[in-house]
Amino acid sequence: MAFFTALGALVPLDHFGHYFHWHFIYLSLSNLIIILLMIATFLAAILAPFPGRKSRKEHQ
C-alpha cells in the first residue's frame, strides 16, 4: 500500500495529463511511454537469446 501511495505522489493524477505537440503529432506522455515500451519489447524479442536455441556457430 505504501508503495502505491509513493507512486501516487510521483505521478500526480489530479492534474491535467502532459501532452507533446510536434506539428500534426499530438501525443500524451502516457501514450508515448507505451510506444517506447513497445519498441523496447520489440528489440528485446529480436535480440534476446531464446532458451534452447543453438547458436549459428554450434550448427556448423
Binding site: 520489440f42 528485446a44 524479442a45 529480436i46 534476446a48 531464446f50 534452447g52 536455441r53 543453438k54
Partner: peptide, 11 residues
Amino acid sequence: PTYVASWIYVF
C-alpha cells in the same frame, strides 16, 4: 522449423 526459436514468434 529451427528459425521459429525466437521470442518474436511468441507474440
